[in-house]
Design a protein around this nucleic acid. Structure first.
Lengths: 115, 115
DNA sequence: AGAGTCTTGACAATGGCGTTGTCAAGAGTG
DNA sequence: CACTCTTGACAACGCCATTGTCAAGACTCT
């Protein structure tokens, strides 16, 4: 499963919200709020169902690391994402790698890409 | 007064907490908490009185901008300061300038230096 | 078609955080 | 000495993030 996740097109929207929530270990309600706050933007089916891509998952993992492990609030995360877009990913990538190592989580190959 | 502030040695600890709090428009209690959280480190007199430098003031102004205007919490600010130390001040400087312009506040000549 | 499950958007509860207030004891100033 | 300010610490309150709940609709399977 984990290797399937890694090998697929990371931008393809494939996970419904319950699956995404399980992968990321977060409440579905929380995912909806992250979307409301503009922190992640899953695709929508013609019937308005959310589908998350691998890229979305990585982005949410990054959000979770910051909120749960570093105590950053959503406004802070927004600032960090703005920095990422403004400056590029080199900076946050190194912070992310260090942060994930500290958290003991799996280490993705790249930092989350902007949605 | 404002021009006196600008012309003095920015690292010299000269303001007691009530004055610093007035300059920055923040409660003294809040300044103590920022210190407790390690976000700013004012000097101490031999009798343990806090003295804030111009540099400290700038740092707190930056913190206030982020907390009050952008809604970032203290953990988020800590992350941003870590970034600043890690990467240098070029990045946050541009964000700071933009943020201060948006807030309509006075624009300092440089970004806050690390304490 | 029907039954069961999942998803949606929206209202609500709860714990934690940030700011402010308060206070006793000590320090500083005139 | 009298008054004011500072210290560290306890407390109150509003806001935020997460979670729970629910009615209606969508989806899946038999």
């Amino acid at each position: 499963m984990a290797s399937d996740r890694v090998n697929r097109d990371p931008t393809r929207p494939v996970y419904v919200i319950s699956v995404a929530a399980s992968i990321v270990s977060v409440h579905p309600r929380t995912l909806r709020i992250y979307e409301d706050e503009g922190l992640v933007c899953p695709a929508r089916t013609p019937t308005n169902i959310r589908l998350y891509s691998e890229q979305d998952i990585r982005r949410v993992l990054w959000i979770r690391h910051l909120t749960r492990d570093r105590g950053v609030n959503l406004a802070g995360i927004r600032i960090l994402f703005e920095l990422e877009e403004r400056i590029g990913t080199r900076i946050l990538e190194s912070l992310y790698d260090e942060g994930m190592e500290e958290a003991g989580a799996d280490r993705p190959e790249t930092a989350p890409d902007p949605v």
